[in-house]
């Protein structure tokens, strides 16, 4: 019955996929346009916006531009701690939700979902306001400056973690739920201690989900905009830097950086798919 879908239906789906990919193709294509502006007409193919020294257009390509490289490095400085913390704390949360019983557990489980429904801008301003209050209180008490509680990378890391942790918790808890407790019982019967069982049985079982959660956290940190925009100090991660460039009227260098971002995201996506495949075992 579904097999004879009308041509109009098929055409609609085709048009939909064109609509889906056109913006991304345009971004990618104009990264290679030999022009000072990321706009038609097409003036020939160039790699100048990636590796150029800036001799031709007066502006260097992204891999030779210190400001762009600094922004990428800043992104990495944020994304790595966020990823590690998201996996470690997410695993702890998963054990808490799947293995422990305590009063108020369902409330806690519900609260863990909250950060997903709070707009990123609001997460940002609330954390900014709270950390400023703590900083003001502590600074007058201790009589010293606590710069890490002011807008900057430390707050960006906390802000991103506040909602990425929900996602990593969900991913890892879903895997732990599928675990067959008999495997642990068998290991205890064979004389293994708690620590040994955890490190040789349970954690290896969780590994695909932990890797998957880490990759998702890495990607979400790299791409986060709203929360980061509020909490950022003088060091701008890549999306914030690109946003500034886009408002000023960009050169194709922004396209080149965007293409790079897409490629990084794409390869992370492939890795996530592989990690998920491991879950099938």
């Amino acid at each position: 019955m579904w097999n004879n879908a009308s041509p109009a239906f098929r055409l609609y789906v085709l048009a939909f996929y064109l609509f889906l990919f056109t913006p991304l193709l345009v971004v990618a294509l104009f990264a290679f346009n030999a022009s000072l502006f990321p706009a038609p007409p097409w003036k020939g193919f160039t790699l100048e916006w990636f590796t150029g020294e800036g001799v031709i257009f007066g502006k260097p390509g992204i891999l030779k531009d210190p400001a762009m490289l600094r922004a990428m490095f800043t992104s990495l400085k944020v994304a790595l701690p966020v990823t590690v913390l998201a996996v470690v704390l997410g695993t702890a949360n998963a054990f808490l939700l799947e293995r422990k019983e305590f009063p108020g557990k369902s409330l806690l489980a519900m609260m863990m979902l909250w950060p997903l429904v709070i707009p990123g801008v609001i997460l940002g301003i609330s954390i900014l306001a709270f950390s400023s209050r703590i900083a003001n209180g502590l600074e007058s008490w201790l009589n010293m400056d606590l710069d890490f509680l002011r807008p900057g990378l430390f707050l960006v890391i906390l802000g991103q973690l506040s909602f990425i942790l929900t996602i990593s918790t969900l991913i890892i808890a879903a895997r732990l739920k599928k675990f067959d407790r008999n495997l642990e019982e068998a290991a205890y019967d064979l004389g293994a201690g708690r620590w040994r069982v955890l490190t040789t049985i349970t954690l290896p079982f969780l590994r695909p989900a932990m890797i998957g959660a880490g990759l998702v956290a890495l990607l979400m940190s790299f791409e986060n905009f709203n929360t980061t925009l509020i909490l950022v100090g003088s060091d701008a991660p890549l999306p914030i830097y690109l946003y500034g460039q886009m408002r000023e009227g960009a050169t194709p260098a922004v396209n080149a950086a965007s293409l790079l971002l897409m490629l990084v995201a794409g390869s992370l996506a492939v890795l996530v798919a592989f990690a998920n495949r491991g879950e099938g075992r």
Binding site: L24, F225, P239, Y243, M246, S258, L261, M262, A265
Partner: peptide, 9 residues
């Protein structure tokens, strides 16, 4: 998987 910023660009 591409960032919101890239899609907007």
């Amino acid at each position: 998987w591409a960032s919101e910023l890239v899609r907007t660009l």
